[in-house]
Structures are given as structure tokens and as C-alpha cells.
Simulated assay, not measured.
Amino acid sequence: MCTRAVVPDVDALQSSRANVKARLRQVVSKVNSAALPGPADLAALDAAITDLCALNPQRDSATSDLINGRWVLLYTASLTTLRQAARASGLSPSSYGIGGSSSGSSSGSSSGGSSSVGGGGSSRGGGGEGLEEVLTPLQLANDAAYKFFYTYVPVLAGAAVGVRGASGSGTVKARGNFQVFNTKVGRVENQARFDVAGRQCCVNVDGTAVVAQMPPGAPKQRLRATFTSFDLLVDGERRLSLPLSLLNPVGYVDTPYLDEDLRISVGDKGSVFIAAREGLAGAGM
């Protein structure tokens, strides 16, 4: 008696991925619009990130041509904050499939893990990390300061990317944060645009990027970056240019989710980044 091989339902997989992406964008919009997002919203964001990473269509994201191009940062947060929010909401935090573990692929199934995709929340297994902690105002305040440095002085935060969310009122107004990958020539560029007292300013941090060596069988999802130069432009004119060789700002970024228009990355400094490809519908949210 012959048995027929189980073929993944590609249409169902794509539908699940589209549903989770829509949910992620909704939560990101809600969190970005809140002056101080609460644990429930951050836990929902953590769940959506986890669910989407389980549906990753690019197992070797660091070597995929899709990672190249100009990306607009939609959201960044401390990974610690999202994990604390998950604990406070009664969920176990997730590693998003990084750290040498294998993420999902286009030939996989969304039912392969404990992640629940679709409309509702996610119940994720995994060991705890000590006593459960409640998300504190101090942690949120720390994140606010961390975001400021990612926005305006990314090299000081050891940034792999900037942050979209910053106050639109006051003297300083954010105008967008971007990252450009070109793995074919081994380059990465970070750019944060903002206005100060009516002057258009831009911080560029350029560097090299190479695919990191991973253990045999592990997905190739890590890029190592070495930042080499820092430039400040005001109204299109370069006002400050510094080499970064003395600071030696070296880091890496893992990308456990990548498709044609959305990227989720986790940096070595402990932050998760959600970015959209520039020019596609909904990139600026």
C-alpha cells in the first residue's frame, strides 16, 4: 500500500502569514500611538512577533537577496521589556527562533510548534527565566531613553538600526529612520532624520556587513556589522564627520523573519526591530 507524501498547503500558509502580518501591524500602530504602552499591548506585540517568526519563509535570511534594499523602521523595543510584558500577561517569553535554533521555512507548517497563528493570542511554551517580573515604570522610562539614542545618536546605543517612534512635539521632531543593506558588497548604512528648531538634520552611520559563521545545520540569519564612519548633515550640508575606528562599534543582527516587504531582526544589544521595505504600501504605517 502506497502512502502519499504530505504536501504543505501553500495557500493556507500564505493566508496565515498574511493574517499574522496584519495583526502585527495593527499592534505596532497601537503601541506607537500610545504615550506609554501597557503590558497587555506589549505582550500582544511579543505574541505577534513570535507567531510571524514561526512562519518565516526565508530560512537563510542573511544570504537572501530579499534582505538587501532600503528599510523603514516601524518599531523597536528592548527584548527584556517584551519578555517582561509576556510574563506579566501570563505567557512564557519566546526567543523568536534565534540563537542557533531553526526558524520556520516555506516548506514548514504553522502547526509545527506551540504557536497559534491567526486571529487570537498566542500561548507559547518554554522555560521561564527566574521569577516572573512585572513591567515597571522604570523599565518603560529606560526604554524611552534607549529609543532616543537609537533615533538621534545611534552609534552611542550600539545601534544596528534606528527607531521610528519618537515624540513629534517639542524642539526635536523625528522624520524617519532607515537602514540600507547591500550584502553583495558587504555594506550597511543607518540613517536617522530629524528636525531641530526648523533645521533638517540627518545622522548617517556607515559600516561593513558580513554573514556570520554559524554552527553546522543552523540557519544563516546573522549579519556582523562594523561601523566605520559617522556623519551629521544639517540642511543637506555635512557639519560633522568622524571615523569610528577608535570606538570599534562592532555588533550583529539576527533576522528570524524576512519576506518581500517586512523584516524582523534582533540585535546583539538586546533589542527587537520591525522594519518595512521603503516604497511599498503601508511602509510608513
Rank of each mutant, 00 (worst) to 15 (best):
T3M: 06
L131R: 07
E260H: 14
K184P: 00
S169F: 10
A141M: 13
Q26I: 04
R199M: 11
A283P: 01
S122F: 08
L247P: 13
T226Y: 13
L13G: 12
A218R: 00
C202E: 15
R187Y: 04
V31F: 03
G267L: 08
Q221H: 09
L79S: 14
F273P: 00
V117I: 12
V211K: 03
I274C: 01
M1G: 14
G127Q: 04
E132Q: 12
G113K: 07
D235K: 02
K269V: 15
V253C: 10
A35Y: 00
R238C: 15
V234D: 02
V272F: 10
L244C: 07
G118S: 13
G126F: 00
R187G: 02
A48Q: 02
G282N: 06
V234W: 01
P93C: 01
K21N: 03
G162C: 03
Q179I: 11
N142I: 09
I274H: 01
Y257D: 04
G127Y: 00
C2D: 15
T80Y: 14
Y146D: 13
V272G: 01
P219G: 03
S110D: 03
Q139F: 13
L66W: 09
R187A: 13
A209N: 02
G279E: 05
I49V: 12
A212K: 05
V253A: 13
